[in-house]
Each structure stands twice: as structure tokens, then as C-alpha cells.
């Protein structure tokens, strides 16, 4: 069974990001390495939410920002392990929109519920499935590394 292994400081930083952008959604990328036990995250990179038209319930990261994040990750010997975003005032469950617009198979999507400006539950989901047509989210346990 795999899990998302993430340092406490990184876990705290993505939750803090959700509080800072509340009542809008935050978003960013998680960098790390794939292991047989699951992704081992090393750092998180904040990204801008381009959906300024509907930032309370949508997020979108500009692809050019990912080009740059990926370039920096390569220099550090890291890969993009997945992405995180917040659900302001809504549970930390993936939505149909999240699934429809998720395309990084094998990567983790971390969602933090932010209630009244405070980070509440954080959950991780692995985008599983061999192809775009049969992709689905599977809950991925979060293991906080010391």
C-alpha cells in the first residue's frame, strides 16, 4: 500500500497557503521522488490561480508556470509529484470538476478544506488508471515525515 510521504513543514505550508488565499482557492505543485512506498514529497511550490474570474470555486495553474516549476525541479533532482489546492468552505473531497480536469495520472492531488479562514481537513488522492478514459481518484493516506 502506498502513501503520500510529506514533511510536516511542507504539509503546514500548503495548509497555510489555503488560509492566506481564503475565500479564494489556492494552488501549487508538490515536488518529490517516486518510491515503491509512494511519492516522497520534498517541497511545495506556490502557483498563481489564473481563474481570477471565479477564484472562490475554481483553480487553474498556467502551463508556463509548470514549465518553470518542472525546470527548477529537474535541477534539484526532483519530479512533479502532484498538486494541491483548497476548497474554501467545502469538504476536502474531490469534486467532479476536480476529476474531469485532472490529467496527471499517477500523481497525487491534495485538497485542504478551509472553513471560516482556517485550514481544517487535508486529504490526498492518487489519480489512478492507465488512461485518461478510465482515470479515477483513489484515497492516498498521508504520512507526515518528521
Amino acid at each position: 500500500m502506498t502513501a503520500l510521504h510529506i514533511p510536516q513543514s511542507v504539509f503546514d505550508s500548503i495548509r497555510a497557503h489555503g488560509e492566506e488565499t481564503y475565500p479564494h482557492e489556492c494552488c501549487g505543485a508538490l515536488l518529490g521522488n517516486a518510491t515503491p512506498e509512494g511519492w516522497r514529497v520534498v517541497s511545495a511550490v506556490r502557483a498563481g490561480n489564473t481563474r481570477t474570474d471565479s477564484a472562490h470555486n475554481r483553480y487553474h495553474i498556467a502551463p508556463v508556470e509548470i514549465v518553470k516549476i518542472q525546470r527548477d525541479a529537474r535541477r534539484q533532482g526532483l519530479d512533479i509529484a502532484g498538486f494541491y489546492h483548497s476548497h474554501p468552505g467545502h469538504p476536502a473531497r474531490w469534486s467532479l470538476t476536480d476529476l474531469a480536469e485532472a490529467h496527471w495520472l499517477g500523481c497525487v492531488y491534495v485538497i485542504t478544506q478551509v472553513a471560516h479562514g482556517k485550514a481544517a481537513v487535508t486529504n490526498a488522492f492518487l489519480l489512478a488508471g492507465p488512461t485518461e478514459e478510465d482515470k479515477h481518484f483513489e484515497p492516498e493516506p498521508i504520512e507526515i515525515a518528521k
Binding site: 483553480y59 487553474h60 509548470i66 469534486s95 476536480d98 496527471w104
Partner: peptide, 15 residues
């Protein structure tokens, strides 16, 4: 040349 799948999501309007 970088291949970048889209990254987006969010809540339905009435959720």
C-alpha cells in the same frame, strides 16, 4: 519541448 497536461479543478457552482 515540454509536454504539460493541464492543471485545474474546483467546486461546482452550487456545491
Amino acid at each position: 519541448l515540454s509536454i504539460i497536461p493541464s492543471i485545474a479543478g474546483g467546486l461546482p457552482p452550487r456545491q
